[in-house]
Nucleic acid binder design. Structure first.
Lengths: 233, 233
DNA sequence: GACAAAATTAAGTAGGCACATAATATTTTT
DNA sequence: AAAAATATTATGTGCCTACTTAATTTTGTC
């Protein structure tokens, strides 16, 4: 033997990935069992297991007990998005962050909001409308509903100076988060607040969070024209 | 001892997660070393390691050798998106899928395309414009460029009957994929093809793929009005 | 042949050990 | 006091073994 440095699970993963890329295994094909691959490559089964888990997480293969591992027959593009706190997002671009509360009101949540929270009975929530600024220019307009039953402390927070976005993310970690992206035309009021033309096409990010079963908040974040979401490299 | 079933790494993960949720550890705080947690919970360090890796992957904590583990001071919302092949997406909704090629042309790629591929020199590529239909109605309009140097076989594919989307995903797995989402107003031609009003706000998904360093394809997928992207539950 | 029970199989997980690696802290040297 | 060498430490990885779990597949029975 010359050198034969031990294979890392990433090496194993890359070799299998490579085999799939070069067509050695096609979508739907079954791969050898972990134990056999391990023997082939002269490494431990646990190393192959970790490699396979990673490929499975990234959506490239499917694994089933007894069924073995196969290349996903219906390939999906699986992407990971990082959505930071807006302040950080702006600062990371090298811009100056600004925040402005527009409205703050306690009222019964409309059915749209109850719907996303999967709630049956109406209840009072805190609605906050606010504008995030980048270098003084409108960046994101958010319309947020906060569940007072789950987060009563929010009433003591000075939302005129600290964004609910930031306070919540630091003080109310969630256990579940649903996201939704779509495009919407600016209505008159939105266009006015974002300083863009009416009917401008805007990317909207809706985010709803829970702790266990309890609703925390739902936000409709309307981004200014030109905003783009990128997958993390 | 009563039962004391062994702790699974998911139990450990959930316990730590819980501790963070309830504020026992705040953003920025350092957590005990894996070994100590393992002793506390009476399990193996490798179990804690797996739990921590998972929390780290999901963006909740940061881990550094010697530095230990700490709760991420700048919490991010990390979400995973699955983008299936369009045909499957339509069929999964219970709709009938349709496909229609609009244009197919070999020409020098414009600088926009060279740009996304990070290519310096101009080269010829295959441009394909096509429409995906759901129950006969326009669903996604795609403008695609395929690199002939990397995928010369595409010239032999009958793109009038099989979508490039599908052929590529089954025959040319990628090793890198960049995604970009934004909103755009429909221009006259787009509005016409998608059967919507001019100036409609449309969600655009741009996807660019490579095998190693070699460009495969870049698509600008313009979705019909009402299209929404959801994170996978 | 149809259905149920039992055996088999391959991935999933827990534990334990040894060592690698990357930060950080400490000590020594200049 | 600054810089360089060294020790320390917590996570990361690999290996091995044993056992669990979920699917099949086989076998047995009616």
């Amino acid at each position: 033997m010359t050198t034969a440095m031990r294979l890392s699970w990433k090496d194993v993963r890359d070799q299998i990935h490579e085999a799939i890329l070069t067509g050695r295994y096609m979508p739907g094909d079954r791969l050898p069992r972990d134990a056999d691959i391990a023997e082939d490559l002269n490494c431990a089964r646990s190393t192959v297991q970790r490699a396979m888990q990673d490929l499975s997480d990234s959506g490239l293969v499917e694994r089933r007990r007894k069924g073995g591992t196969r290349v996903r027959p219906d390939p999906v593009t699986r992407a990971t998005l990082d959505i930071p706190v807006t302040r950080r997002e702006v600062e990371q671009k090298g811009s100056r962050y600004g925040y402005q509360m527009i409205r703050r009101e306690i009222k019964t949540a409309p059915s749209r909001v109850l719907g996303v929270f999967e709630l049956a009975e109406p209840q009072k929530m805190l609605q906050v409308e606010a504008l995030h600024l980048s270098d003084g220019r409108p960046y994101i307009l958010e319309d947020r509903w906060i569940c007072l039953r789950t987060v009563p402390e929010i009433l003591d927070v000075d939302l005129a100076h600290q964004s609910a976005n930031e306070w919540l993310v630091l003080n109310k970690p969630y256990s579940r988060c649903d996201l939704r992206f779509y495009a919407e035309s600016a209505d008159d009021q939105t266009a006015d607040l974002l300083g863009c033309g009416t009917e401008s096409a805007l990317l909207v990010i809706e985010r709803t969070t829970w702790v266990e079963e309890a609703p925390i908040t739902t936000v409709k974040a309307i981004t200014a024209p030109g905003y783009q979401l990128l997958t993390r490299s």
